[in-house]
Design a binder for these strands. Structure first.
Length: 420
DNA sequence: TCTGGGGTCCTAGGACCC
DNA sequence: TCTGGGGTCCTAGGACCC
């Protein structure tokens, strides 16, 4: 069997773990720049607030005291995620961290009652040790485990653990699952399938698989198999990352190339730092710019381009230089840009970097690597003390709106003492 | 006024190869 | 005039996930 452990309303639960006064209240957590709602407590879900709602549409509720709002605090969520994952690793034979708040737990060879027992104990342990509520779904395929997890969350009678381990339960669960709630069916396919009379997951598996394949391709077929009880999504999903992206929307629109240079340099430096943290190097640096798509009165421009490096690298200066070159090749005067980003791709292991025969820059590369090591010693996630002059003073994420941020509970002694 | 960030994978079409 | 069959690689765009 495969279990899926998923934290309930994760970002909200992280806020509550350090601010117990938020328990039982309607709470939402906002995206960067305080843009839109990305996490909701059960109470705010019950008020009808949808995922992705722009904050200004619910701001009145906050002003009236009917809703509590927090800016997102990814340092805090990352810390709590690591703690939850580490408890899972101590407990299950294998852990595939699928996202910040959920992990697949392949448990072949463990019988169902034992797996259920372990899962119930683990939920209690995670709650006690981290304050985070977790639900577990158990089934033979990952897609069915997702469905089981939905039920575990929805019906308190399961006490956090729901199992689909025979055909009777599987068909019952499929009949109760709206097609749009199925993992792998998104906002494009959901309405289309409903138009064809496919309203539940059960309707979906009752279609001939050939018809699914010709209409939806390999991914549709995989979902169909998984719902039918045949494993089609395997653990290969979790490997070394294939791309690393750092991007932000700006609080205001930017048209000045000098200002864009600083932002892009910041994003590129952050990508280089992430590469070094995981022991990787990249061959390609891609830069993109977006104008504000909501301003229909303004001219739009969404350029992007990729610069290829002769040698895979992860030093700050080389990645930043490449990104600035890319920026200059796509930038056009007269547009107001709202967002920019840097993506590094063609990632390989640091130790596997292949030199080139006539590398005139070899000495420079060694120096840059040494410089990057010094930067890594001085810089942390929350404080960028040593930067290139092309970057902005302060932190790469400065200038984004965070008006409702809670305290850095997991990283500051002062605040931890305050909590105590 | 305000509308996120970070990923993965697949597909179709063009350019090119023999 | 007629204009195959089998590939690879790259890119852009679409679809999905949390």
């Amino acid at each position: 069997m495969i279990a899926l452990a998923d934290c309930n309303n994760f970002f909200v639960s992280c806020e509550r773990a350090f601010q117990p006064q938020l328990e039982g209240k309607p709470v939402v957590v906002l995206s960067n720049n305080d843009g839109c709602v990305v996490a909701r407590s059960n109470e705010s879900k019950a008020m009808g607030i949808k995922m992705g709602t722009p904050f200004f549409q619910v701001k009145d509720l906050v002003d009236e005291g009917k809703l509590v709002v927090r800016s997102s605090n990814y340092t805090l969520y990352g810390d709590l995620s690591r703690r939850v994952m580490s408890i899972l690793r101590d407990t299950y034979p294998a852990v595939e961290a699928y996202s910040i708040d959920e992990a697949f737990l392949p448990s072949d060879g463990i019988d169902v009652p034992t797996l259920q027992h372990i899962s119930r104990e683990t939920i209690v342990k995670i709650r006690r040790w981290t304050g985070i509520p977790v639900s577990v779904g158990i089934a033979h395929t990952r897609t069915l485990a997702k469905i089981a997890n939905h039920f575990a969350k929805k019906y308190p009678a399961y006490h956090g653990v729901c199992t689909i381990d025979n055909d009777e339960k599987r068909l019952k669960a499929l009949s109760l699952t709206p097609i749009d709630d199925v993992w792998g069916i998104g906002w494009r396919w959901g309405p289309k399938l409903r138009k064809w009379g496919v309203n539940t997951a059960l309707d979906f598996v009752n279609i001939n698989s050939g018809a699914i394949y010709s209409a939806m391709g390999i991914n549709g077929l995989r979902t169909w198999k998984e719902l039918s009880g045949i494993r089609a999504i395997t653990s290969e999903v979790i490997q070394r990352r294939q791309s690393i992206c750092t991007s932000r929307s700006f609080a205001d629109m930017i048209s000045d190339i000098g200002e864009l240079e600083k932002r892009v340099a910041d994003f590129a430096a952050k990508c280089a730092q992430k590469l070094r943290q995981e022991g990787s190097a990249a061959y390609c640096v891609c830069v993109f710019l977006y104008t504000n798509r909501f301003r229909e009165d303004l001219r739009q421009h969404y350029p992007c381009t990729t610069v290829k490096l002769p040698v895979a690298c992860n030093s700050t200066k080389e990645i930043v230089d490449a990104a600035l070159m890319a920026l200059h090749s796509i930038y056009l005067e007269g547009f107001q840009y709202k967002k920019a980003g840097v993506v590094v791709t063609d990632i390989i292991e640091e130790e596997a970097v292949q030199g080139v025969l006539f590398d005139y820059d070899l000495e420079m590369r060694d120096k840059q690597d040494a410089l990057s090591k010094v930067m890594d010693r001085l810089n942390t996630d929350s404080a960028q003390l040593l930067r290139l002059a092309t970057q902005r003073p302060g932190h790469y994420a400065d200038g984004i709106r965070r008006e409702h941020c809670s305290k850095p509970f997991s990283t500051s002694w002062k605040d931890m003492i305050e909590v105590k």
